[in-house]
Write a protein that binds this DNA or RNA. Structure first.
Length: 217
DNA sequence: ATCCCGAGGG
DNA sequence: CCCTCTGGAT
């Protein structure tokens, strides 16, 4: 099979975007949150965990710890107990407490709005920072590459099939889509990955993107 | 490259 | 049983 040209790949990416806009017009963050601090906490919790599992525990968590000062003051055991059901709970509890203390000490209890400041927080790397910048602050600084976006980018032939690093996948995806659609692309691909292009059993027969997908799985 | 880790689905 | 889930730190 001859390799796809850059122009063809770009045109196909824009058609994929059109299909996503048609299939998931209201695609949005599935995590429940009311302010940037809550979104930051929920996103840290969401690592290797389904959003439903996170949404089950955050109402009680946000009631107990409504702000960074409250979460920074909580004990490790207390926080672990509140988030145990989602897995990776020791690391997440430690990061939540450290991150909250950083917000209090360095940013007056507010969530910062730059990539550099966000990624300096405990438990926050580029993916989580992109979620905050794009979804909480309306600043499209990149494309969220989580486990779904990573898998779909490979299946759709939008990045190298052997690419293992999310940041490199993101750099391949960004020039393929208009910057003002980057946030939507992340939300829509995650939704599509959960509902149709499922990890174990992709539903190719009912997929609205089937004819613009190389299907190299 | 490895570790963290419980819940849900097949 | 096995695989997967809106990753990040060491």
């Amino acid at each position: 099979m001859s390799p796809e040209s850059k122009a063809d790949k770009h045109a196909r990416a824009l058609e994929i975007l059109r299909r996503l806009e048609g299939a998931y017009p209201g695609a949005d963050c599935a995590l429940h949150w009311k302010d940037p601090f809550q979104l930051l906490v929920a996103t840290i919790l969401s690592a290797q965990t389904s959003d439903e599992q996170v949404n089950k525990i955050t109402p009680d968590l946000f009631r107990r710890y409504p702000n960074p000062a409250a979460l920074a003051a909580a004990s490790q055991a207390e926080v672990e107990g509140a988030i145990r059901s989602i897995g990776l709970f020791r690391n997440k509890a430690k990061n939540l407490r450290l991150m909250s203390a950083q917000l209090c000490e360095e940013f007056g209890g507010e969530v910062p709005q730059t990539m550099e400041q966000l990624t300096a927080l405990a438990g926050v790397a580029r993916k989580t920072a992109n979620v905050l910048l794009g979804t909480a602050f309306g600043i499209p600084s990149g494309i969220v590459v989580d486990t779904h976006v990573h898998r779909l980018a490979i299946r759709m032939g939008l990045c190298k099939r052997t690419e293992r690093y999310p940041e490199k996948v993101e750099k391949e995806l960004m020039p393929l889509f208009p910057q003002d659609r980057w946030v939507f692309v992340g939300h829509a691909l995650i939704l599509h990955g959960r509902q149709v292009c499922i990890a174990r059993a992709p539903q190719c027969d009912t997929c609205p993107l089937s004819d613009v997908c190389p299907k190299r799985i």
